[in-house]
Every structure is written in C-alpha cells, then in structure tokens.
Design a protein around this nucleic acid. Sequence first.
DNA 1: GCGACAG
DNA 2: ATCTTGTCGC
Length: 233
Amino acid sequence: METMDIPAGRPATEEQARAIQDELRTRTILGEPGPPPGTGHVTGVDVAYDDERDVVAAAAVVLDAATLEVVAERTAVGRISFPYVPGLLAFREIPTVLAALDALPCPPGLVVCDGYGLAHPRRFGLASHLGVLTGLPTIGVAKNPFTFSYDDPGPRRGAWTPLLAGDEEVGRALRTRAAVKPVFVSVGHRVSLDNACAHTLALTPAYRLPETTRRADALCRRALREATTRQGG
DNA sequence: GCGACAG
DNA sequence: ATCTTGTCGC
C-alpha cells in the first residue's frame, strides 16, 4: 500500500479527536462510483481487543472479488491508543488497521470496514476516516443502526430502506439474507451508496455479514489470542 | 440532567 | 468489543 500523506495526529482528548474529524471530513470524496463489484480485490479489516492486557490486534484480509477466495492476509498487534467513545471509534481502531494494511503484499482494492462511514454524528465514521488517510475506496457495513432510524426492509435478500438521520439519508438498511436482520451500509470514500450496497450483496452469498468482515474478524481474534497467549496469560 | 450509543 | 453454557437446527 502507498504511504499516507495526511497527518493523522493521535488526539489526546475527545475534543481534539472531534476537531480532527471536522478537518479530515472536508477531504472525503463522495462523487465517485468506485470499483465495479466482482472485479479486482476487496479487503476486509477488523480489530479485536484485550483491554485487560492493553493489547489490540488488527487483521486485513484481501479477497478476489470474483471468487471470494483469500489472496493475502496480514495482522498487526499494538497497544490500545484510545478508549471506545461512540462517534470516535476510528481513533481506537485505525492505527493498528493501518499497520495491517501497510503490511499487505498487494493492493487492497476496495476496503470494507466493520462500522460506519457517512452514517456518523459528524458524517465521518471509521470508513470515511480510513479512506481519507489511505486514499483507498472504502465502505462501512455495520451490524447495528447506531443512533439512526430506519423502517424494516422487506423480507427478501436485496431489499433495503433508507438509514435516516432526521430526514437525511446517511446509508441503507440492507437485507443480505432472507428474513434475517439487515446490515447497515454507508459510504466511506470514493464509492457511491448504490455501489456500496452492490458490493455488500456480492460479499454475502451465504451469511448475513460480508465474507471480508467474517474473515477479518476470525483472523484478528486469532492474532489477539496468539499475542496474549505468549505473554502473560 | 438522563439515557442511548458503530466496535 | 468482551464476558459466557447450553441448545435448537440443518
């Protein structure tokens, strides 16, 4: 992956973190469609924590978008740099995620985040933040609606409804499995909402959550277990 | 002021 | 996110 040219700056306070979000938000690109689903690479990133031991492990798993087979995977381990604060998740996850992405031996293509992008109190969630820092196309696929509202989509796979912040559409509740709770898709950087949903459906041939997320989740948990297991556990 | 609140 | 046993079902 290429080097980032934007100062990330680890905030010391929540106030500083919000100020960084407000500044970086102006660099978000929302006018591009993004890569077509089913082509190139699609990469899942996820993070696992051991707060007790102050250890965090991130994973990046690159899939072939056409076959969903694993092309490459890397992990990174570090210390926890920020507490979990709703709306400031990126500051907790991104340092280690960047390290895992940087270690990849091939271009990540589209990056799928476990969380939100535009659907965020200041319209700058984890996926937006990661996209701006790396320049890569990113989307967010979350398991919960956070503070946003939505009407339940129809029962068919592919059905969706707007995810709303008041009257503003910040994402979609998308049904990826028939009659199963929807996922919550929002754009990060350089991808349209239509395309983000198409990618999400392409990544969910068998389960509610994208294969990228499932692979990255399993891998970062394993990395965390191995990191803590050979220390003091 | 109180509760809710991505992971 | 993480703490945690069994259990229903394909």
